[in-house]
């Protein structure tokens, strides 16, 4: 029995599917997050050099990885939407942008809070932190452009083009910032220099997966709202249980 995957590329069917999927991502995310933090705080030993402050790494590194990958996935969805004219892909890109921006913010925030005890300054022009800041600007540019155009179709396509141009520039920006940083300031303390105890790696990996599941759950929830907003005049939306009855249908 060949499953017709394309059935789910229509907003109406995807709306139902996303609704069912959210709990399957949200709950595992919370559980994994809790376990990951437990291992990170109780099982992982105190680091010789950085004593307790290093535990920030368990959220800082996953957030940085997430912010980078969500941008590339967002650009991928945007490109799909631009090339195949599929509205759902553009909606998915629009849904991912705020989550990616928030992960970039978390990465910067935790990086600053970790930098203070380690390097003695809230903000260090380290190559990674600087590229993360520029990535946050790219996110804000995408969100601002999408928000400032009324017509959703043009907003999707314009933001998609910007995301593609942005994703081409991300590596260029990273290497130029890396080159610029080593020129001016010499190598700062390498984060990955300390050999990672196995418990540390486990904790970080769990928090990473938890963040992934969380990002998917939030993006699915947001894309459902976007679908409703954009398809408000359609028949299938007015027939939805949650629209018909005050308390009927899914949460």
């Amino acid at each position: 029995m060949a499953i017709n995957w394309f059935k789910y590329s229509a907003p109406s069917t995807f709306y139902g599917l996303a609704g069912k999927l959210i709990p399957f991502f949200a709950w595992p995310a919370a559980i994994l997050f809790a376990i990951g933090l437990y291992i990170g705080f109780f099982v992982a030993p105190t680091d010789a050099v950085q004593s307790e402050a290093y535990r920030i790494i368990f959220i800082h590194v996953p957030a940085s990885i997430l912010s980078m990958f969500i941008y590339l996935i967002m650009a991928g969805y945007a490109a799909l939407g631009l090339i195949f004219n599929t509205r759902l892909s553009s909606m998915m890109a629009q849904a991912l942008a705020p989550t990616g921006a928030l992960f970039a913010f978390i990465s910067l925030w935790t990086g600053a809070l970790w930098g203070k005890p380690m390097w003695g300054a809230w903000w260090v022009w380290d190559a990674r932190l600087t590229s993360e800041l520029i990535l946050l600007f790219l996110y804000l540019g995408f969100i601002a452009l999408q928000a400032s155009i009324e017509d959703p179709r043009r907003a999707d396509k314009a933001a998609a083009l910007l995301a593609i141009v942005g994703s081409v520039n991300v590596p260029i920006i990273y290497f130029s910032v890396k080159w610029w940083n080593t020129l001016h300031q010499g190598a700062t303390i390498k984060m990955s220099g300390t050999s990672m105890h196995v418990a540390m790696q486990q904790a970080m990996f769990m928090v990473l997966v938890a963040c992934w599941l969380y990002a998917i759950a939030v993006a699915l929830a947001r894309v459902r709202s976007i679908i409703l907003e954009r398809e408000r005049n359609t028949q299938w939306v007015s027939e939805l249980p949650e629209v018909k009855y005050e308390d009927g249908g899914a949460k």
Binding site: I134, A144, V165, G166, N169
Partner: peptide, 12 residues
């Protein structure tokens, strides 16, 4: 806001 981040390598 859109263009300045992309011009950073040129500035550097």
């Amino acid at each position: 806001l859109l263009v300045l981040p992309l011009c950073i390598p040129v500035l550097i």
